[in-house]
Write a protein that binds this DNA or RNA. Structure first.
Length: 805
RNA sequence: GGGCGGUUAGCUCAGUUGGGAGAGCACCAGCUCGACAAGCUGGGGGUCACUGGUUCGAGCCCAGUACCGCCCACCA
């Protein structure tokens, strides 16, 4: 064994062995209570980023811990087909080749996408392997698998049968870059520096005018009304009259609607239902025409008269010139406002009216709301449940159609008579008129429509498989904040609707890892940290440990210090194992403590086992990792190993070696869920191994050695030492310090410090006397607190007396 | 416009029913004897953002302020 632990080679070897030997594999027929987690499926085109790595590390702790405890474990891996992201990649390639998907045609495009994915997609699972994630890779699923798609179609047909599905011409967020509509959740509102133009609209009866402010003068061509707030006295007389829309010189009614903010601009709003979401709503409510003047290509369309075919910039120029010529352009000023951008391509969203498939969500949301309220689905941290609830309670219809080709094609067929047939398999004739001339809807489903089924569709639902029986519902869902609405709540709704059960009972929302300067990690900013590189440099165990320590807060800046701490821990463990194995390789592990240090470490191992149990149950991963660090460094290495070192070299002392091996075994077991590789490597070098550590049983509670015994021992011995040496010892501190004071003689204070110690004790006594002398404290504080204070006071007095103070 | 989170040592962060301010890194001093210099021992360093309140007692609970960050929302 080298003196420096080098994870290179070691980790890869164990990853291969674990997988080959089948330890990752889930068997529904295996004994034990089921414990399952579905890994949030990464994009098939994606790379592992630091958030994935953190999320995988926490899940793997739970998975490995439960595996050791004898649960029948499934950690389900797989990929999401990520319609828009894949389109972006493949279409960029086509563009580079001087073509596009429309020239290529649908079939060829899909075929090409599959080929591209075979070559370049699906690398995240290998990256997870390198992290030591013990997923059942043999069960990898893909939302575009032939076995997965039927679940998606069933979902849609089911929703249709329930009456939740409808098709409507509504205003949508059109992403010109993607060539499709996207949902509200896929739109980021970013501040943009624009101009705000104030335009005078003459009244139709020639008597005066009304002025409006707009950020998009080109859309004036689509105006169908002018709206004011009903409580706005300035315009009350104008309501019901008509204004003349500039440029097109069309008459448009002046209407009243409370959604108009009188404080903004002139207090009057031009209504353009075709190109603004608010205007669309107001237009619908007032029965206004939905005139469209901009096409899907972003240019002015045939309704734009002489501007048809112009770009929006050109159209804006023309409109502004027209207004200026007639003196109707009152003002043009700098204006900063939030504008929707596609969160995928960063293109400016174009609100357009298109025909889309919608799902009415209110009835679906109800069971999810109840489940959260009643605690059947718990969020960690707790406050995240309020965020989910708020969204569910204000849920809006979900646009599930995307004008893309890569994805599950919507199972709706149209006949020439205008009927629609929705079915899981292609119908031979129209359900209404029997026509055989059917054409399928061109659109595919929103990616999240299929991933909403992930926890059970991966188990082959709607088939009634053994896996579904055993592993569903899953236990835990762990993910980042940003997809609570996109994914988590939708899984709850879909799961409840289709299976009658919530798909999980615990939702862990882990921290968002920021760059070290506090900015978001991003490739374009150059602030990203690649987990692969961290693993290559520091090892998977160190990376896992570091990520766990970063997992506890809402946001955390990436700090390599945590990883280095993990590396230190792995190295320390390696070396203390080396010390023990050097001397005890031929011994049998057995618990035969003779010294107080040995009872101490056995008590500490047991206490930490209990502590870890609590932390892992509470999903307090950082606290668990920290407890392991303290146990390994402070307790096991710095005290226990130091204490037994002389005895280890005594060939007649077989007890110390047997105990050392036994305690090392327990330490390795406790550490394994966090640092699987280095622990398995050491485990394999212990004498007489019959099984792998990955499936070794988690330690049982061992009450033979309690902290109380040990503390008593320590205090007594410290007192003896003090009387003998005549110097002060630090007895006031916690158990650890007491132990310290005795085991490490050089930590005992020198004579010269006795005065300082007396000072300190006097202060402590004064504090305790002050508290105990306060009647209100004695009456109102909890009895155990008062009692503890009394004991402290008595102890301080004894110590002071011993010092002659 | 709503909602959530943060502010603790030079840096990154812990601090779980309110009762002695902590860790890692960095820094200083010593050890540098066969597990580990990627080590060991010791040490310096903090008005726990600010103001007020509750309490015998507040980093922790309440109210407010400032700054930072995130989410949601139909500001043209």
């Amino acid at each position: 064994m080298d003196s420096l632990y080098n994870p290179e080679g070691v980790e890869e070897r164990w990853q291969q062995l674990w997988e080959e030997e089948g330890h990752y594999r889930a068997d529904p027929e295996a004994p034990g209570e089921a414990y399952s987690i579905a890994l949030p499926p990464p994009n098939v085109t994606g790379q592992l980023h630091i958030g994935h790595a953190l999320n995988a590390s926490t899940q793997d702790v739970l998975i490995r811990w439960h595996r050791m405890r004898g649960f029948n474990v499934l950690w389900q891996p797989g990929y999401d087909h990520a319609s828009i992201a894949v389109h972006a990649v493949v279409e960029r390639q086509l563009l580079a080749e001087g073509t596009n998907r429309f020239e290529l045609g649908r079939e060829a495009f899909v075929e090409r996408t599959w080929r591209w994915l075979e070559q370049y997609g699906g690398i995240v699972m290998d990256q997870l392997r390198k992290l030591g994630a013990s997923l059942d890779y043999s069960r990898e699923r893909f939302t575009m698998d032939a076995e997965y798609i039927p679940a998606v179609l069933r979902f849609f047909v089911h929703l249709h049968e329930r009456g939740f599905v409808y098709r409507d011409n509504r205003i949508v967020n059109w992403c010109p870059g993607c060539g499709t509509a996207v949902s509200d959740l896929e739109v980021d509102h970013l501040d943009v520096d624009d101009a705000l133009t104030t335009v005078r609209y003459p009244l139709a009866d020639g008597d005066g005018s009304i002025s409006i402010a707009t950020a998009r003068p080109a859309t004036i061509l689509g105006d169908v009304a002018v709206a004011v707030n009903p409580d706005d006295d300035r315009y009350r007389d104008l309501v019901g009259r008509e204004a003349i829309v500039p440029y097109v010189e069309r008459r448009a009614p002046i209407i009243a609607d409370e959604r108009v903010d009188p404080a903004f601009g002139t207090g009057a709003l031009k209504i353009t239902p075709g190109h603004d979401a608010l205007d669309f709503e107001i237009g619908r409510d007032h029965g206004l025409p939905e005139l469209t003047v901009i096409g899907l290509d972003g240019r002015m369309n045939e309704h734009a008269g002489d501007l048809a075919g112009a770009t929006q910039e050109e159209a804006e120029e023309q409109v502004l010139a027209w207004l200026r010529d007639r003196g109707q352009l009152e003002k043009r000023e700098a204006f900063r406002h939030a504008v929707g951008h596609c969160n995928r391509t960063k293109d400016r969203i174009e609100p357009l009216i298109t025909e889309q498939w919608y799902v009415e969500m209110r009835e679906l949301a109800a069971p999810a709301i109840d489940a959260i309220r009643e605690g059947r689905v718990r969020f960690t941290p707790r406050n995240q449940s309020a965020v989910a609830l708020d969204w569910l309670e204000n849920i809006r219809p979900w646009n599930v159609s995307r004008q893309l080709w890569w994805g599950q094609r919507i199972p709706a067929w149209y006949c020439p008579n205008g009927h629609t047939t929705i079915a899981e398999t292609e119908p031979s004739a129209c359900a209404e008129c029997g026509s055989g001339e059917l054409t399928q809807d061109e659109d595919v489903f929103d990616t999240w429509f299929s991933s909403a089924l992930w926890p059970f569709a991966t188990l082959r639902w709607p088939e009634q498989t053994r896996e579904l029986d055993v592993y569903y519902p899953t236990d835990v869902l762990s993910t980042a904040r940003d997809i609570i609405f996109l994914w988590v709540t939708r899984m709850m709704m879909a799961g409840s609707e289709l299976t009658g059960e919530m798909p999980f009972h615990d939702v862990i929302i882990h921290s968002l890892v920021l760059a070290s300067d506090g900015r978001r990690m991003s490739k374009s900013l150059g602030t990203g940290i690649e987990p692969d590189e961290v693993v290559a440099q520091h090892g998977a165990d160190a990376t896992r440990y570091g990520l766990l320590k970063m997992s506890s807060t809402q946001d955390v800046r990436f700090s390599i210090g945590f990883i280095e701490e993990g590396r230190k821990l792995a190295n320390k463990l390696w070396n203390v194992a080396r010390l023990i194995l050097m001397n005890a390789a031929d011994s049998e592990p057995d618990v035969r403590p003779r010294d107080v240090e040995e009872r101490w470490i056995l008590a500490r191992l047991d206490a930490t086992r209990a502590e870890l149990q609590r932390h892992w149950d509470d999903f307090a991963f950082a606290a668990g990792a920290n407890a392991l660090y303290r146990l390994t460094f402070d307790d096991f290495c710095d005290w226990y190993a130091e204490a037994i070192k002389p005895r280890l070299q005594d060939p007649t002392d077989t007890d110390v070696r047997a105990t050392a091996l036994a305690t090392l075994e327990r330490l390795l077991k406790l550490l394994h869920p966090v640092m699987p590789h280095v622990t398995e490597e050491i485990w394999s070098q212990l004498p007489n191994r019959t099984s792998r550590l990955i499936v070794a049983p988690w330690p049982e509670p061992d009450n033979r050695f309690t902290a109380d015994d040990r503390v008593l021992d320590r205090v007594q011995e410290a007192a003896v030492l003090f009387r003998r040496s005549g110097v002060a010892v630090q007895l006031h501190g916690d158990d650890r310090r007491i132990f310290d004071a005795v085991v490490k003689p050089d930590r005992v204070r020198a004579d010269g410090d006795a005065a300082a110690e007396i000072d300190r004790l006097r202060k402590e006594i004064a504090r305790a006397e002050g508290m105990l002398g306060n009647d209100r404290f004695v009456e109102r504080a909890p009895a155990d607190v008062v009692e503890a204070e009394r004991e402290k006071l008595a102890r301080y007095r004894r110590e002071l007396e011993a010092l002659g103070g």
